[in-house]
């Protein structure tokens, strides 16, 4: 009885300052809106500039004040990429490397995560902690021995040198194990009573139940491989085996340097598909970063 008037009283006092605050806030929030708008323009400007310059006739590109609209318009710059570098082949290499790396690493991570989450075996904790430590080992430390290994296997300057080391990803294992651990074990037991084996439980039950985590892992792994510059720089020499990041840089300073507009055209060809994919899958992309960043 006595509690009710008290809460009502508090509510009524709360509404009075709140309306006042909101009004005072609106001038402040207008300023915030404007600052953010300017920031968005500045953030987006390099991409707009990139695309507009690559569509402008070379003689008129890169003028000051900058021309934000491509006049006179041309597609010549794009045509000039292909005699300089095997761009199509590089794009294909990138697709092959990123797809196989992602698919392979996903398979090994799912299996390993199942083992760490569901199987009791000797030394499990020890191996798991070793793996977590490995999470902190930088690539630069392992790349030299891996390079020597690849040289002994005669795999230097092949796509396999990029794919094989990417087939195991400690972060993905850790992330998926955490997710599997959050799925109740009672489900496994129920499935086992119905006669299900480990692989059935894993692929028919845990994997479908973890689809948010799986898609996050796919996005992250694919992006890591697609954007990698360090490994191809070390393992790949010949243009026909290059992936896109290293191919782009070779266009600028390699054996056959092209004019800057052509470099820009190539960068545009790499960036625009990503931009389209981003606009379509923005929500999934952000969710994958948020989920992995917070758990990992």
């Amino acid at each position: 009885m006595s509690a009710r008037p008290a809460t009502q009283a508090r509510d009524s006092t709360a509404t009075v300052p709140r309306t006042r605050r909101r009004r005072r806030f609106s001038t402040g929030s207008l300023v915030i809106d404007l600052v953010l708008l300017v920031l968005a323009v500045i953030m987006a400007s390099p991409i707009v500039w990139l695309i507009s310059q690559s569509l402008t006739v070379e003689r008129f590109a890169f003028q000051l004040p900058p021309g934000w609209i491509p006049v006179p318009f041309t597609l010549d710059n794009f045509e000039q990429i292909f005699p300089l570098v095997p761009f199509g082949q590089m794009a294909l290499n990138s697709v092959i490397v990123a797809t196989l790396s992602t698919g392979g690493a996903l398979l090994t991570s799912v299996l390993a995560a199942y083992a760490f989450s569901r199987l009791a075996f000797r030394g499990r904790e020890f191996i798991f902690i070793t793996m977590l430590t490995a999470l902190m080992v930088p690539v630069q430390l392992t790349v030299i021995p891996v390079f020597i290994m690849m040289r002994n296997l005669h795999l230097v300057d092949t796509l396999a040198a990029l794919i094989l080391p990417a087939l195991v990803n400690v972060f993905a294992i850790f992330f998926l194990r955490q997710y599997f651990n959050s799925i109740p074990r009672e489900l496994d037991e129920a499935a086992r009573i119905d006669g299900a084996g480990h692989l059935w439980i894993l692929f028919r039950m845990l994997v479908p139940l973890s689809s948010p985590a799986i898609s996050a892992v796919i996005i992250i792994l694919f992006q890591l491989s697609w954007n990698d510059y360090f490994d191809p720089l070390i393992f790949i020499n010949s243009p026909q085996n290059m992936t896109l990041p290293i191919g782009l840089v070779s266009l600028q300073g390699g054996a056959a340097p092209g004019p800057v507009v052509v470099v820009f055209a190539a960068v545009t060809l790499v960036v625009v598909p990503v931009l389209v994919l981003f606009l379509v899958f923005q929500r999934q992309f952000v969710a994958s970063v948020a989920a992995s960043g917070i758990r990992g």
Binding site: A40, W226, N227, L244, L248, V271, F278
Partner: peptide, 14 residues
């Protein structure tokens, strides 16, 4: 948000 997130997806090379 879109303008702030997008550059994250582009490779360092580009």
């Amino acid at each position: 948000k879109a303008t702030l997130f997008f550059p994250l997806l582009i490779s360092w090379a580009a």
